[in-house]
Design a protein around this nucleic acid. Structure first.
Lengths: 336, 336
DNA sequence: CTGAAAGCGCTTACAG
DNA sequence: CTGAAAGCGCTTACAG
């Protein structure tokens, strides 16, 4: 099972290795006929360039690194993550790139992996998810000189590109939907406030409510169903409970449904519920939950495209990008 | 941002590159003191070996390839996949390996990626999920000479190792549970019969039922909630409907619950339901579904360990392995 | 215990 | 348009 090399091709064709390399890489310096012969033989012998030799010569890899810092168990309850991942893959597939993946919930390890992958030239750049307050990655990656794109929230280093979901528009959509239904007091059950995009939502939901003269009560939870249920329960048990809530993800919306049910109340009668992140969960629960379809695949694809662009143009400050406004899918918990 | 190389270390220490390399790789040929000095300086300068240079010299990469052939949209509804993935990651993390991931639902591309990754030395071996009838991968990978481990079902090439869930024991557990509750006619709503592990389950469920003198009706579906609901609906509408069913995954169990509810029947009274693949879905649905917790993380970890072993011992035929029998989590749909 | 040298499979100036 | 040569950063026999 001897590997076929460029030298083999050169030998069989009576050419030099350089000519073969030029032909294979579609560079000037070889006649069309020579190029044809080279490509045909490469095809016939099923030659593929050695990725390590090429990376060593070019001093760069064509692999994108993705280090996910989440509890693996929690991750499995997040359809959103898999859909973002699939979007990245689709884009990388087109560009024939590849994704090197690591899942760890140890912050020390996380940083070590970024360093190691970059220093050992394993990857040409990184896609960074879940930016949080005091996130060490913007500075770390800048100091390493590693290209990176931040997904869902801006990097604190403005020279690093980011791709965002349109949180302001989405907040507007959610608040507007509930306001149009006549609700005057909303609850916002946000995810972990250490996450940057949750801060953004906190502010944009508040702004949207203020603009309409609505009252707003914020309460934080951890994205789990159980904690969502607890948080919504607390809201419901207040004397001045809101009549509608917005939850930061689908799982907490399910928790909300259960909180309502546990109190023998009904939705939307006693509490209307609308969620970020549509998924099959929102459809499965009874009653089905009104939710924003955020097109996670598009976000992932945009992230992949952006990091590939950044790698191709090192040093260039790329424009930030965002996905199209999400689409509200009204269901029984608001319009039931 | 100049890369630190072994030559830099050698220069600064007044040593040769080979001594430095020996020290770094913990091989004989250097005094303990020299080794210490080398390691200290490497640490101080944050030296990391160039993965491509090392791979080129060693003629082998330390990356494992995972090509997932699934519709990305469907994938996001499968907590099972993410949990297997997380298990692999945990094991690879320990061994400091990495996972190169590609998701595609195009069979042509799938084969091309296996070829390309192997021929270009990007990966040292593969983990293969979702083996199906007439799967081209056993032959392809054997002909390439690429190490591979098959997860969930044996390869048709017996020299390739596999790691399995204990399907026979699990079938026994599920059938036994329902039989103990007094059910005499079971339905088995299997997943796509083209998948090898579904064939195994088809046979082992049948054997377990036969052994107990139970009647069994098999019907196939595609793992989606909608198709599960359809299949269960068909069973329920028969004049001789089974009193209990086993579904091939959690999503179809949810479909079963909905089929029952749509007919204004109840579970477990009119139909008991037990599922393979416990997940939060089984807990969320009302009534909650009895399910087998298959320890997907352990399966993923075992797969990663096995491919690493196979790579370390090329040519050796490894013993096949399986995870511990799954644990049945009884819930309302059977013991309600 | 240490050093000089060849080699892994590519790319890329530099001459012809 | 083509070839000989150096170099990417490692590893590993082979001499000393």
């Amino acid at each position: 099972m001897k590997r076929v090399t460029i030298a083999d091709l050169a030998d069989r064709l009576g050419l030099s290795k350089s000519s073969v390399s030029y032909a294979l890489n579609d560079r000037p310096g070889v006649s069309d006929e020579t190029r044809r012969r080279v490509l045909d033989l490469a095809d016939e012998l099923d030659w593929h360039p050695s990725s390590s030799a090429r990376a060593l010569s070019n001093k760069r890899s064509d692999t994108i690194g993705l280090v996910v810092r989440r509890d693996p168990e929690m991750l499995s309850t997040e359809p959103f993550f898999v859909r973002v991942l699939a979007g990245m893959e689709a884009e990388l597939e087109r560009a024939d790139g590849a994704l090197l993946l690591r899942i760890t919930d140890d912050p020390e390890r996380e940083r070590a992996i970024y360093r190691q992958w970059w220093r050992s030239d394993r990857v040409a750049g990184f896609i960074c998810l879940d930016q949080h307050v005091d996130d060490p990655r913007p500075r770390l990656l800048t100091s390493l000189g590693a290209p990176a794109v931040f997904v869902g929230a801006p990097s604190t280093d403005p020279s690093q590109p980011h791709v965002l979901s349109p949180e302001a528009e989405d907040s507007e959509t959610l608040v507007g939907h509930l306001a149009d239904l006549g609700h005057r007091h909303l609850g916002h059950v946000g995810g972990p406030i250490a996450l940057s995009h949750e801060r953004i939502r906190h502010d944009t939901v508040a702004a949207a409510a203020r603009r309409r003269g609505l009252r707003l009560t914020y309460v934080g939870a951890d994205y789990s169903k159980a904690d969502g249920q607890r948080a919504v329960g607390e809201l419901l048990d207040r004397p001045d409970a809101p009549t509608a809530i917005i939850t930061g993800n689908d799982l907490m919306a399910v928790g909300a449904v259960h909180a309502v049910r546990a109190r023998r109340l009904t939705s939307p009668g006693d509490l209307a519920i609308a969620a970020w992140d549509d998924s099959f969960l929102c459809q499965l629960v009874d009653p089905p939950v009104t939710a924003l379809d955020r097109a996670p695949g598009a976000l992932g694809a945009l992230a992949a495209r952006t990091i590939l662009d950044q790698i191709a143009q090192p040093g260039v400050v790329l424009p930030h990008r965002r996905t199209a406004p999400s689409v509200l899918v009204p269901r029984a918990t608001t319009v039931g």
